[in-house]
Write a protein that binds this DNA or RNA. Structure first.
Length: 400
RNA sequence: GCGUCGAUGGUAGAGCGGUCAAAUACUCGAGUCUGUAAAACUCGCGCCUUCGGGCUACGUAGGUUCGAAUCCUACUCGGCGCA
């Protein structure tokens, strides 16, 4: 893998680059489509390609449980298994420490507003969750059948080598925004120790056995919502010999850009940075401006399947009554397959009738919207009009 | 024509003297979703409200009762059976 910066955003951390992987290049900044279980839900790889998405992110925890990484290895790696020939990444399973842990059965997400009342409740452990963390690793219960499993940094890296993605992540602990400073610090320090172990295991294993290709390993910066922890984490992780970095964990909604800047001011400029799990348009602008090269997010596909669609004038809920006889495009000017061929009224009908094509057409549209947005942001940096584009877009989208 | 069973909110369908503005499901209305436990979930769904409550409702009209969606009578409509 190599990463070249083509242009920088004046007086800011932002940049345009090209990331080369064994399965092709990624023009950055880029939006990474999420295909957790070796499929971008409701969309075929060919449709993903037509959207001009460049890269797909799958998940270690989910693929380990089903179908199992040995089967993917036997298939010749994830690319062959799922018929995606472009660049691929796998997340380490660290996010599931959170989503199946403290967040299990709760409405907590990794983004919280500073004024959120839930932040006051401050729980760090819960008895009903599927996860138990110790310094060596994490005991999991399968979210499929309840069976017991254990992940350590070494285990996660081994699985990721069997899966064979081009870019893999160190095993980390994604914490809740509700976690207090003490817990956040403890988890961060544990993540740092796990980062060293992930790196050592990765070096020991060498090239991926299933693909014969060299994989790149990204370390993950944690530290939650706290400035000193974020900076400390960036310092510690940047000293390790990673090929790039992920920025994970929870954020204050209001401080997303600032938190990213705290970290990216410390991380080495010449290596790529991936902001994990972020995909709201305004967050993407903040991320790019502050030096993020890669974003992944489930939002376009999940929201799409649930009936919320992006338009240049903001989100719409296609299930609203007013769209039943609205024969216009979802978004005038959108070049996606869905907008080229179908109306709001048709999508409204498909959603009301609970037809499977609804999820497909909506996912295609939302993915296209976000992938295209990031591409436009990239172009605006090359054209020296990032700030004008940002202002114009946000004004139309959020009416602010 | 006689007998018999039934008629409940947008739909289906509970309730069978007070705890019923009426279970439940669906439909309908709105919202949420940020490294996917998610084609999921939450809220609302007679009218009015100073949020205390008030008013109108279980085919129609009467009646019994302190009190009726629930019991009685007649009527209207529908299913079934016999002519």
């Amino acid at each position: 893998m190599n990463f070249k910066i083509k242009k920088k955003l004046n007086n800011e951390l932002g940049r345009v680059g090209v990331l080369n992987t064994p399965h092709g290049e990624i023009k950055t900044p880029a939006f990474v489509t999420v295909g957790t279980k070796a499929t971008i839900k409701a969309v075929t790889p060919e449709q993903v390609k037509n959207i001009e998405a460049q890269v797909v992110l799958a998940n270690t925890y989910h693929l380990y449980l089903q179908p199992n990484d040995e089967i993917i290895k036997e298939a010749g790696g994830l690319h062959k298994f799922m018929n995606w020939n472009g660049p691929m990444m796998t997340d380490s399973g660290g996010f599931q420490v959170f989503s199946l842990g403290t967040a299990f059965g709760d409405s907590v997400t990794k983004i919280a507003s500073k004024t959120d009342e839930k932040l006051l409740s401050n729980p760090t452990t819960k008895s009903c969750c599927l996860v138990k963390i110790d310094d060596d690793g994490v005991d999991f219960r399968s979210c499929i059948d309840g069976s017991k499993h254990r992940f350590t940094p070494e285990k996660s890296i081994n699985i990721q080598h069997n899966i064979g993605a081009d870019i893999i992540f160190a095993f980390d602990e994604c914490t809740s925004p509700q976690a207090n400073y003490e817990y956040q610090k403890e988890a961060m320090e544990r993540t740092h120790r796990w980062a060293e172990r992930s790196l050592a295991e990765h070096k020991k294993l060498g090239v991926s056995e299933s693909t014969g290709k060299q994989q790149s390993l990204f370390g993950i910066v944690q530290g939650g919502r706290f400035e000193d922890l974020r900076k400390k984490s960036a310092e510690v992780i940047s000293k390790m010999d990673f090929d790039g970095f992920g920025i994970g964990g929870s954020f204050d909604k209001e401080d997303m850009g600032k938190a990213v800047a705290w970290v990216n001011e410390v991380l080495p400029e010449e290596k790529p940075r991936h902001l994990l799990g972020i995909g709201e348009p305004e967050d993407i602008f903040e991320g790019v401006q502050n030096g993020i090269d890669l974003f992944d997010c489930v939002a376009p596909t999940r929201m799409g399947r649930n009936g919320t669609l992006h338009t240049q004038n903001g989100k719409i809920n296609i299930l609203n009554a007013k769209f039943q006889n609205d024969f216009s495009k979802i978004d005038e000017g959108c070049e996606c397959y869905t907008c080229q061929n179908y109306t709001k009224a048709y999508l409204s009908h498909l959603f009301r009738a609970k037809e499977m094509l609804a999820g497909t057409l909506a996912s295609i549209h939302n993915l296209y919207f976000i992938v295209d947005l990031v591409e436009k942001i990239r172009q605006s940096i090359l054209d020296d009009n990032f700030f004008e584009f940002k202002k114009e877009f946000l004004k139309a989208y959020y009416r602010k």
